[in-house]
Every structure is written in structure tokens, then in C-alpha cells.
Design a protein around this nucleic acid. Structure first.
Length: 489
RNA sequence: GGCGACAUAGCCAAGUGGUAAGGCAGGGGUCUGCAAAACCCCGAUCCCCAGUUCGAAUCUGGGUGUCGCCUCCA
């Protein structure tokens, strides 16, 4: 059984073999923190998160690099508009991303380099390109000469003449070719700068990734990833820069691109008004449900997001965990956390789905079937335990919590807050001061319990109804009554 | 205009030559004071047309439709 992945470079699904046996080098383009992280970021990073988890489960030692491009036009724009320092903008939005990443259970990359920490490396890189005659200086910067690279356009399968015909940006007179792109931008007033042989300025987009890939993974490495909107021009330009300097092809043996996220059938964008900020979304919905939602779709396909789809995912996950939490408890794997290089015992069938270009939807389907079978069977205790352990290992590879997710799926992370009318109503029923809304609700729930205990079902139903109108849903279980806020769709 | 992806039940979605996974919603049932949850059971011949084949959702050709990239973007 071999892992097969779709390679953008060849436009085919190919068997994955790393350059060095047992070791995988992976670079993923991270975010540019010029605005809130959004759902599209989540989808892309979740995709590579599962890839890394699976590679590790297969026994590969993975070096996972995910960068931060913490300097670019939009960051500066934003900072100027707000009258704050550029790095304040970066810290704010990257901080948001870090919190979201943690909630989503994204693995921490092996290295997470920041572009602005790598500028000397970029300057060296650019200097070398100039020496090779592949780059030239102009009044406002240093540009890469596309004409110097005979292979330019091959990753994204672009025809240069057509690209030139479609060029919409006003051609700067000093650029030798409209397709040439900036390696270094000379400073303009009000911009952060770093020193260089071409005067103070800042790096252009693309060069940071070339420099960081090379520094952390070498001239050639196994997998370069990102979302599919980066294929052109970002990755094409990265390839041009790197391969010109190293003289080696290919820079990355596999280029893997995650599909874009659409919202209600349209591309998500700020201007379309369907931008989904991640922090808010994760306040309102369980992060595991977001992961589950994306696991249900092939990572390369465009994914249509809607609130209805997420809500269906919440319900689906809840059902999944009803089964998972019923599994015999026990450690995820016999010997605790997976040591590097240790191979998790995944069921062959489950693994065969992931082998097939990371078919998480198929794998999830298998898991559901297995859980149903587990429910039905469950005779011999030894078998049960072994199967439970195996199923938990599957969850782990997908990055889903091993168990105990029920509480996090029902409890909202939003503050418990009643509006004044409902608060008065409940306080009148409770007939007592409560320190806060949560306690107030609890008191009314207890009154209803008491009514049930004395079989006063009319009163019990009345209290359920009053709470219901305040947006609170009750569940009577063996261990008492649970309540939660119900969010209207 | 150029390049590309996709089109499977009400919705999401897997499946790339041998007679359609899974989830959500819906219906029926068990359980529950009621309700919820949970558990059991129930559903599609795969956008259209023409081909290839013993056999196609799966291959070829032609349509139609949706979306994306070509400019900043995960």
C-alpha cells in the first residue's frame, strides 16, 4: 500500500516517496496577518494538518514548516489607516490566528519562521539572482526577469504571451517585461524598511518563501503546499526564483493545493460581504465541527460553506461522539503518545482511503460504519478494547478529539446572558436573588426538577416553556438535567 | 477571450469499468410523565445526447449548467 497524492506539478495522482527514506520535508504557505483569519485559512491548514498527522502515523518523520509573511502592502496600508505600527497589526491578527489554530487542534509546525526575521537571507538570495543576470535594479526596486527562466509558467501551465496580453496593471516603464515581479521594493515615505545593497526597503512578495524553504528544507524538498489560489503567481514565482539560484529542478517534488472555500456558492471575499472571520465563528460553533465539516469534502474540491452545512456538521459530530464516547475507555494507543517514527496501527481499510489522495470523506464514512459495527457487536471484552483503541487511533489521525467532546459540543462558549425581560421573569419564579444569570437559570431548572419529583408535570412543563422562551433547551438525563442556550439558525 | 475544476437522493458528499459509502434533514418504530438524546428500520441508476464495451456514474466525443484562476488572496 502506498500513499498517493495529486501533484499540481504533473497534474496527476502519483505515488509519494520522500527524497530521504523515512523523512518528509513539508513547507506550507502560512497567513499574511493583515486582517482577521478567516474560514478559508482554517480549511487550508486543516488539510495540511491531516496530511502531517497521516504521514506521521505512517511512520515518517515530518519536518513541517509553516511561515508567516509578516510584511506586505496590506499590512502597511492597514497600519497607516489605523495610525498604528505595522507590527501592531501583525501581532493582533497573528494572535487571533494562534488562538484559532489552537482551538482547531492544528499541530504546531516544526518551524514557524517570520519573514521579517529572514531578511538577510532574502537579500543574499536576491543578490545571487542579480549576479546570475536573472534580476535587475530599477529606480523603485529590484525585479526578477521572467525571460531569464525558460521554464517559467510550467507549474501553473500559463502561456506567457497570453499572460502579457491579459496584464492589467499599468506597466512600469522600467520593468523589462510586464510579467517581471518585485524582489525588493525600495522604501517610500512612511514604510518600514530594512537595509540592503539597493538601499533601504522591504522584500517583495514571493521571495520570503523561496528564502525560507531553502533555509529550512534545502534546495529541494518533498512537498510544498498552499491553497490553490497561490499557484499563480505566488508559487510560480517561488519556483522561478529558487530554481534559478539552485539550478535544481524540481524545487519541490510534490505541489499540493487545497481547494478554495466558497460561501453560499460564491467566492468568499470582503467585498462580497460573505467574509467569515474565524474567531467569531469559533465563538459560536465547536471547532471540532469545523474540522468535521471539512473532513467530509475532498481537500481539492471547492467547498461550499453555509451556516446550514455547519449546523448539520454539529449534529453529525454529536452523533459520532455518542458512539465514540460509548467506546470502552482507554489510552489512545497502548504506549501513550506516539513517538516519532512509531507506526500507529490503523486499520488497512481506513488507511487505504487516506492513501488515496487523502480521501478523508471516505475514511470518515468507514469510521461511521465501523462505529455502527462496534455498536452491534461488542461481545468479547478483549476484542472490544482492541477495536476501541483502533477507532480512537483513526480519530487521532483525522485530528478529531478522542472523546469527551460531548460537553464542548453542547456548551456554547459565548457568555450566558439573558435579556432583561427574561431575567425578571426567571427571577420572579426563582423568588430569590441569584449571583448571575447562570445561577438564576440553574435555580429555575432545579425548581422544575422538584416539580417533576412530585409529579407536578403541569408546573414542570410550564417551567420548560418559560426557559424555552429565554432560549434555553433542557435535556433530562440519567445524571440530572442539562441545559444550554439554543442558537437560532 | 485564455486556462482549469466540477455536475451523484431534499441538502452535504464518497465512489474512475462489473449492477451506487457515509452524514444531515424526512418517515416509521423502541425508550421517555412530556420532550430531547440514544438505538433499530426505510430512500437515488448517478445533468443531457451520441459512442466504445459482454457490461459505464466511472472511458471517448458533443451539448448544457455552476464555479474558480488569469490582479491581492489560504
Amino acid at each position: 500500500m502506498a500513499l498517493r497524492l495529486y501533484n499540481t506539478l504533473t497534474r496527476r495522482v502519483e505515488t509519494f516517496d520522500p527524497l530521504q527514506p523515512g523523512r518528509v520535508s513539508l513547507y506550507v504557505c502560512g497567513m499574511t496577518p493583515s486582517f482577521h483569519p478567516h474560514l478559508g485559512h482554517a480549511r487550508t491548514f486543516l488539510t495540511f494538518d491531516v496530511l502531517v498527522r497521516y504521514l506521521r502515523a505512517r511512520g515518517f518523520e515530518v519536518t513541517y514548516v509553516r511561515n508567516i509573511t509578516d510584511i506586505d502592502d496590506k499590512i502597511i496600508e492597514r497600519a497607516n489607516a489605523e495610525g498604528v505600527a505595522w507590527d501592531d497589526v501583525v501581532n493582533r491578527y497573528y494572535g487571533e490566528f494562534t488562538v484559532c489554530a489552537q482551538r482547531l487542534g492544528l499541530l504546531t509546525p516544526s518551524v514557524e519562521p517570520r519573514a521579517t526575521d529572514e531578511i538577510p537571507g532574502m537579500v543574499d538570495f536576491i543578490r545571487r539572482l542579480v549576479e546570475l543576470g536573472a534580476a535587475y535594479e530599477t529606480a523603485d526596486g529590484v525585479y526578477f526577469s521572467v525571460a531569464h527562466d525558460p521554464r517559467y509558467g510550467s507549474l501553473s501551465r500559463r502561456n506567457l504571451d497570453e499572460l502579457r496580453a491579459g496584464e492589467r496593471i499599468a506597466v512600469r516603464e522600467e520593468k523589462r517585461d510586464p510579467l517581471d515581479f518585485a524582489l525588493w521594493k525600495k522604501a517610500k515615505p512612511g514604510e518600514p524598511t530594512w537595509p540592503s545593497p539597493w538601499g533601504p526597503g522591504r522584500p517583495g512578495w514571493h521571495i520570503e518563501c523561496s528564502a525560507m524553504c531553502r533555509r529550512y528544507l534545502g534546495d529541494q524538498f518533498d512537498i510544498h503546499g498552499g491553497a490553490s489560489d497561490l499557484v499563480f503567481p505566488h508559487h510560480e514565482n517561488e519556483v522561478a526564483q529558487t530554481e534559478t539560484v539552485t539550478g535544481k529542478h524540481p524545487m519541490a517534488r510534490f505541489w499540493i493545493h487545497a481547494g478554495l472555500l466558497n460561501v453560499d456558492g460564491q467566492k468568499m471575499s470582503k467585498s462580497a460581504g460573505n467574509f467569515v472571520p474565524l474567531p467569531e465563528l469559533l465563538d459560536r460553533f465547536p471547532a471540532a465541527a469545523v474540522r468535521y465539516l471539512f473532513l467530509q469534502t475532498g481537500y481539492r474540491k471547492p467547498s461550499n460553506f453555509s451556516l446550514a452545512a455547519l449546523e448539520a456538521a454539529v449534529r453529525g459530530l454529536r452523533g459520532l461522539y455518542a458512539d465514540v464516547d460509548a467506546l470502552p475507555s482507554g489510552p489512545l494507543v497502548p504506549d501513550g503518545p506516539t513517538a516519532a517514527g512509531e507506526r500507529l496501527a490503523l486499520p488497512d481499510e481506513f488507511a487505504s482511503y487516506l492513501d488515496d489522495d487523502l480521501n478523508t470523506a471516505g475514511a470518515l464514512g468507514w469510521l461511521q460504519r465501523a462505529l455502527r459495527a462496534q455498536r452491534a457487536a461488542g461481545t468479547d471484552p478483549a476484542t472490544r478494547d482492541a477495536r476501541a483503541r483502533t477507532l480512537r487511533a483513526c480519530l487521532d489521525v483525522l485530528g478529531l478529539p478522542p472523546s469527551g467532546a460531548h460537553a464542548s459540543l453542547t456548551a456554547r462558549t459565548v457568555e450566558v446572558r439573558l435579556d432583561d425581560g427574561h431575567r425578571k421573569l426567571l427571577a420572579a419564579i426563582a423568588g430569590d436573588e441569584a449571583p448571575d444569570d447562570r445561577a438564576l437559570i440553574q435555580r429555575v431548572v432545579e425548581l422544575r426538577q422538584a416539580a417533576r419529583a412530585r409529579r407536578d408535570y403541569a408546573e414542570s412543563d410550564r417551567l420548560r416553556d418559560v426557559l424555552g422562551r429565554a432560549g434555553i433547551v433542557l435535556h433530562d438525563g440519567k445524571n440530572g438535567t442539562e441545559w444550554r442556550f439554543h442558537e437560532p439558525a
